[in-house]
Write a protein that binds this DNA or RNA. Structure first.
Lengths: 224, 224
DNA sequence: TCGAATACATACCGGTTAGTATGTATCGTC
DNA sequence: GACGATACATACTAACCGGTATGTATTCGA
């Protein structure tokens, strides 16, 4: 029994969908997915429930779309952007990325942490599709680091006796852990401190000898 | 208008409170605090709502108590237990703890992650008292690591050119990050891999041997 | 131009939630 | 053994939640 629909501007489905995604990201970032209120999202997006359920079959689908279309791009640009553009040795690029995140954390980053990690911890055990979407982003992130390290190994800028993929995974874990601890402590200095130690760890991955050419001494433990 | 109260056994307030804490921990661990249902907790504890609200003023207070009286002890025993009992050098003790966690993760640990980290990520921005309770546990954890490292430095088992407290904080962050990534990937091997790299990082904190004799390989091997 | 698909808008609904009101059985104390 | 405090038990409520039913205005292809 809808009587008098309010003034509607124009029909711009893409714009509407985008407003929904952005408002949903905001609310989910703040409260978590389960506690995120659709009414709040709708109010913030200035969109009605009819529009929401026209674009998404249910709340979960909205969440998946937020991961795939908002969070993923945000994170990959944040952590792989410089790495992809910078043409020097990858360890330096990585260290600069860390330094940049430590020096310019959005205030949200201290208060609210990493949106990807938040969703990972909250939703992984509860919703398998959520888990897959989140984990796909982690995979892309880790792969970006791994490719950079492998390139560094090929160029002789990174020690060859380390497993690049293993290290890449660890670096992602250390970044997320550092961000999570800083969030719990509500402390930007703690974030900086942790990322500094991580940067020192990366430093230890440089080849020991200054000679450029050969490199053959690979003495190391198990590969997997 | 309560008519016929069911058979009551005996009055054991401490036992009742304990059942509530255990059931609440379980439900919160599985679904997160906000999504945790009091009715589910009550059913699992086989306790009624009247008992719950006799022991705790509201849901939040129950949550704080779970952190202080269940999670804190669990985590500190898990990560500082061996460290406190072991009398050898602290780096070895730490590496053994990591190895033990990597080799014997409860299935819950892969599926549900770290209960302390879960609460930290979910509740820190939402409830300040929650944040304080969680962060106090992180502090105790980090302090335990820091004291061990400082002792190691005093005994010459740990390099003196590193900041023990900074490193301790990083190790906690790396552990939580590793656990969080493994949870997202639902992969025990990933947990093992990450903790192995962390163990290698710890290895790099040993003093380069030159003065005092007694120590074997200076090689940079994995410590598993 | 016209019909049908699209893109919304509004009102409503059933279920779940934390929390409360009120009762009663058991306990320690005198 | 009375009595007040403690430790529950049961029934209920008000708010909020995701989701649906149904309406209408706009757009577009034929």
């Amino acid at each position: 029994m809808a009587k008098t629909p309010a003034r509607r501007r124009t029909r711009e489905p893409d714009v509407t969908r985008d407003k929904l995604l952005k408002a949903a990201f905001e609310e989910i970032y703040r409260r978590g997915f389960q506690a995120a209120s659709l009414d709040t999202i709708l109010a913030r997006a200035k969109v009605t429930k009819g529009a929401l359920y026209h674009h998404f079959p249910d709340k979960a689908a909205l969440g998946y779309a937020v991961v795939d279309e908002v969070v993923k791009g945000l994170l990959l640009e944040r952590w792989l952007g410089l790495l992809d553009r910078f043409t020097g040795d990858p360890l330096t690029a990585l260290q600069r990325t860390l330094q940049h995140r430590a020096a310019n954390p959005g205030p949200r980053e201290i208060e609210l942490g990493c949106p990807l990690n938040n969703l990972a911890q909250e939703m992984s055990p509860i919703d398998e599709r959520f888990r897959r979407a989140v984990n796909a982003t982690f995979d892309a992130w880790r792969d970006g680091f791994a490719r950079a390290l492998e390139r560094g190994q090929a160029e002789g800028a990174v020690r060859r006796d380390v497993d690049a993929r293993q290290v890449a995974s660890f670096v992602v874990a250390a970044v997320e852990g550092s961000s999570g601890l800083a969030k719990s402590a509500q402390s930007a200095p703690m974030l900086r401190s942790n990322l500094t130690v991580l940067s020192q760890f990366l430093e230890s991955l440089r080849p020991a000898e200054r000679a450029r050419g050969r490199k053959g001494s690979a003495k190391r433990g198990a590969a997997n």
